[in-house]
Amino acid sequence: MEERQQSAHYVREAGCHREIIALDRVSFAFGTQQVLDDVNFAVQERDFVGLIGANGAGKTTLLRMIVGLTKPQRGEIRLFGTPAARFRDWHLIGYVPQRNHFNPLFPATVREVVTSGLYGRRKLLRRLTKADMDRAADALDTLDIPDLADKRIGELSGGQQQRVFLARALINNPKLLILDEPTVGIDMETQLNFFQLIKHMHQHHDITFLMVSHDLEMIRGYLGERPKATSGKLSFFVRHSHDLEDCAETDLVHTLRKEG
C-alpha cells in the first residue's frame, strides 16, 4: 500500500506534461531483418497516442518492449521516467489485450477475470479482501456490465468481452492504459461504442492512452489526419487532452461511475 501511495504521489508532484513513455533511439531486428530502426518518441501525460502500422511494421514488437516483455537491442525505453528494465510500478499501467487472445472455453467468470487485474508481483501471496471485491464490482458498474459478473467469459459477445478486459485494466486506477488492437473482430456499432467510452475517459480523467492498431478509421476524427511522427512503417498520431490544467489525482473507477 505504501509503495502505491508513493508512486501516485511522485506522479502528482511532478505536475502535468510529465513524460510517461520515452523511446530513445530504440532498435530491434529479427535476425538480419531490421524491424525498428532508431525510433524516438515521447508520450506525454494525458496524451492519446495512436500507434498505427501494417502487419510486420513492428508495432507488436514495440508494444512488447514498452511493457517489458522484450528488450530493445539498442536504445532505451523509460516508463514514468524510469528505465523499463528497472521499472517496478506495473500497477500504474493497465493493459487491454487483443480480444481473440484467450481460449473461449476457459472456465472463468467475468468476476474472476476482472479481479485478476489486481494480481501482480506487488501482491504476491496476498489474499483478496472485501475491498478488492468491491473494486471489482465498481469496475463492472463503471463499464455498465454488473449483471455479467457471474457469466463465463467465453459466453459473452465480443463487445462485452472487451468491456471485461477494460474493467480488468481499470481496477488498479492506472495512469497509462495500453490497448493492443482492442476492437479486432468486433462489429462496427460495438466498435463505435467502445471508442466513445475511451474518448470520454481520455477527456475527463487523468489517464494516458497508447492504442496500437493496424488501421485508424475509427479514431481518425479524434487523432487528426497527420501523424506527429513516423519511423519506418510506424506512425504516431497524437491528441492532447482538453483540460491540462486539471491534473489532480482522481479515483477513476469511482468518478466515472458518479458521472454515470
Binding site: V67, G68, H91, P97, E112, S116, G117, Y119, L128
Partner: peptide
Amino acid sequence: LLLKKELFLLTFDEDAAAVSGLP
C-alpha cells in the same frame, strides 16, 4: 494454494501477467 491467484492470471493471460509484473 499460496500462488493460486498468480497461477490463474498466468494461465488466463500470460502477457497480462507479465505486464502486471509477475516473473
